[in-house]
Structures are given as C-alpha cells and as structure tokens.
C-alpha cells in the first residue's frame, strides 16, 4: 500500500507492506538511522519519534497508521543551528553511547513545550518511558532542564 508521511516537514511517500513498523519505515525506507531499536517489547524508547508533536514509540505503530500525519525524528531537530536540546546534551554530558539520546531529546522537546522549566521529578517522570543504560539519567535530566532555561532565555 502507498503511504505518505510528513517527516521533518517533508512529505515522504512509499509503497509498503501494511505490517511495516513505523520505525522500519523511517530507518530502512527513508534511510534515516537516527531513530534506533533497542528492544522488542515497547519498553526502551530508543525508537521515540514525535507523532504530530507527541512522543510515541515508533516500534509499536504501523507506518500505515501514520499515513497523513507528521512525524519528527532526531534528524529534524537541527534547524540551521543545533537545537538547544542538542547543545545542552553536549554541554551537560547528557549522553554516553548515544543510543538512547535521540529518544530522550525528543521526549524533552515535547515536555519543554508544555512545561518550559520542569523540576527534576517532572523530567524524570516524562522520560520514564525511555531507558538509558549508560548515564544513570542525572545528566539527561540536567540537559533537559538546561535546554528549557536556554529556550526561555531567548
């Protein structure tokens, strides 16, 4: 079947099997590999994308269901210059191996849009659908908070 998904602002059409998962559509049909796969039980959030602005796990949605919708991936964060989240993850050592990072940043983005200066607990709650094995989370929380402050400061 033919589906058209607007990815990072560009409409992308492909002919796919209905069973194609959104994450595979993004990674293999479109060749955008910033969205990762870390589990098979919808537990880890490495595949997080924004669906019409809301973070979801793209491993647990068929690309067919995204037909006509907007999807944002990590590749869409940078807009000429790095997004404040990208800057703050760097500055606060919010990543180590980088595998969970795209998902964490996208969840952070959605969170900051509704809550520009979240508390430590609020960030932890928001990212509790995303696993990280390296950082122990402290610096991810700091990175998201710092990005919020940076966005507010502008």
């Amino acid at each position: 079947m033919k589906v058209t998904v607007t990815i990072n602002g560009t409409a992308q059409t492909a002919d796919i099997e209905p069973r194609k998962l959104l994450v595979d559509f993004i990674r293999t049909e479109l060749g955008m590999t910033g969205t990762h796969i870390g589990c098979d039980t919808t537990s880890c959030g490495a595949c997080t994308v924004l669906l019409d602005g809301t973070p979801i796990k793209s491993c647990t949605m068929f690309a067919a269901s995204a037909d006509g919708h907007e999807v944002q991936t990590v590749e869409g964060l940078k807009n000429g210059e790095l997004h404040p989240l990208q800057v703050s993850f760097k500055q606060n050592h919010g990543l180590q191996c980088g595998f969970c990072t795209p998902g964490m940043m996208l969840v952070g983005k959605a969170l900051l849009e509704s809550n520009p200066s979240p508390t430590d607990d609020e960030v932890r709650w928001a990212i509790s659908g995303n696993l990280c094995r390296c950082t122990g989370y402290t610096n991810i929380v700091k990175s998201i908070q710092a990005a919020g402050a940076a966005i507010e400061g502008n």
Binding site: P18, R19, L21, D40, T41, T42, C59, T60, M61, F62, A64, S65
Partner: peptide, 26 residues
C-alpha cells in the same frame, strides 16, 4: 480492531497474535 496498538502490536511482534485483518480505528 486496532486501537492504540500498545497491546496488540507487541503481541504480533512476538508472534503471539496473527490477525488476518486489522481495522484501524485511529
């Protein structure tokens, strides 16, 4: 019926469910 898919799709991925047709109500 395929609603949020948050139970059905994980079951399909683990091949615990294999529906012949899905009616997506999204």
């Amino acid at each position: 019926v395929l609603a949020g898919g948050q139970s059905l799709i994980p079951m399909m991925k683990l091949r615990l469910a294999a529906p012949a047709n899905l009616v997506d109500i999204n």
